[in-house]
Design a protein around this nucleic acid. Structure first.
Lengths: 249, 249
DNA sequence: CGAATATCGGCAGATACGTGCAGTATCAAG
DNA sequence: CTTGATACTGCACGTATCTGCCGATATTCG
């Protein structure tokens, strides 16, 4: 039994049963669990399955994507959300981006705070249902990968609003490249939101630092504040030099 | 049964039934209640559900509210939703209203159908995340009681779209008063949607028949079709005389 | 109020995990 | 053929996670 052959077999089992148990495979193939665990680790690194305690589950792209994003550094994202929510004061008008970190912001917002939240994410809007804050939904074509409105209609609606603060989520935070995201349409909307807000606050969970995605949203020195958690001081020094306020949640 | 698998299952159950009882799950899976409670605690910390004494409920109050309303004639509403979903054909552009019956329509829509769904409800938009259909979200001020966009911005966005069919939900269906709803702003939006659609299909669960709410949306003979379930023939005879097509789901 | 039930924290046993190490097989170069 | 490099596997050990049980509290309901 060749190594590759064995890994193929694991994937086949996973596809058939919807799950793989490390112990079962090792018994079936008369190999140590260590070997199987190594296979699973490898396959998980290749994104072919999702590793869980005891075995593995399928990595069904579409469903897993959103879920996986929510599971990366949940504690840090929650902390960032809380810190950002505390920055919203009574009477303010704020833009809240889509994305998992922004969702934590919405959840952490004081339920009795009288403010106006403008968002292009139906998920964020739904999360604010039991808050006192006024919610303005930006419409447009729905980009399902991220569940946000994009397109000309969304940009036009944004241009008619002036906000105090824009809480922006990005997928890459790089000291020389700047702030980036993976979709061109989304980048366009983010730029429109920045242009309509007096101040931009970037919400950056640790895995984003040092990363760069295809589409640049803002130059490194453009936003006013960077909220992060669990990041090394060295990664942030460059931004501090550029005059950004760094908030460690 | 892997741990992660079990948590997925809890979430699935929650989505299906709208609630989860710790004891039931532990019995069903032959595990101690402690383990299930730990799962529920964990999932609640991730914001995926709301912990309550004895089990758990869906995460946001908005969803819960909708579900509570959804408990009035759920089977009939589901049947109406299915019947209405079957009326949408490939390539069409349709308006889908907010409300629980419309939510069933969205859920019942063929996941692979290539159509365009225009909606002013973030809840409906979210329900269509894993459908092939293009989704256009109508933005505006969010009216939280019903979780729909209202106001001038919403009306303006609607006026720029021409749809084949508008699937309308109402709170009152009365043979002489017409079709009514409980909120003036919502009524305004419904009228705008009707004006922009070639055809209007009313989704009427049985408790609406014979009822009238404060704000009139349409005259008794204005819509083209009335989809209902579990209603007495006598209640519908008047509408049939006015030329409406009656669909019994 | 009191009984029934649910919840939480801590504990312990079982299991799973990751890493370092050693033995073996394979292969290419000398 | 020998040697060295590399990859793969199994084992050992310390750590992390999961699960059931227990006791103390909290909540619900008659």
């Amino acid at each position: 039994m060749l190594t590759e052959e064995r890994r193929q077999r694991i994937l086949t089992t996973l596809a058939r049963d919807g799950r793989v148990v490390a112990k079962d495979v090792s018994t079936e193939l008369s190999l140590s669990e260590d070997t199987i665990r190594r296979d699973l680790r490898q396959l998980a690194a290749e994104g072919l399955l999702q590793r869980v305690h005891g075995g593995a589950l399928p990595a069904s792209r579409a469903v897993r994507d959103l879920q996986a994003r929510g599971e990366i550094f949940p504690a840090e994202k929650q902390a960032i959300g809380r810190a950002a929510a505390a920055m919203v004061t009574r009477g303010q008008v704020v833009f809240v981006d889509g994305g998992t970190t922004a969702l934590w912001l919405a959840r952490a917002l004081d339920k009795s705070l009288a403010a106006t939240v403008v968002t292009h994410s139906p998920v964020i809007a739904a999360a604010l249902a039991d808050h006192a804050a006024e919610v303005i939904l930006i419409g447009g074509r729905l980009y399902k990968h991220s569940m946000v409105s994009v397109g000309a209609a969304a940009a036009a609606a944004i241009s008619q609003i002036r906000a105090d603060t824009y809480f922006m989520g990005v997928t890459g935070v790089h000291a020389s490249v700047g702030f980036t995201t993976g979709d061109a349409e989304e980048a366009q909307i983010k730029r429109a939101l920045m242009a309509s807000a007096a101040e931009t606050v970037v919400l950056a969970s640790p895995e984003k630092l040092g990363a760069a995605s295809p589409f640049v949203v803002a130059a490194p020195g453009e936003p006013s504040t960077l909220v992060t958690a669990g990041a090394a001081a060295a990664d942030l020094a460059d931004f501090e030099r550029l005059g950004l306020t760094i908030v460690r949640a």
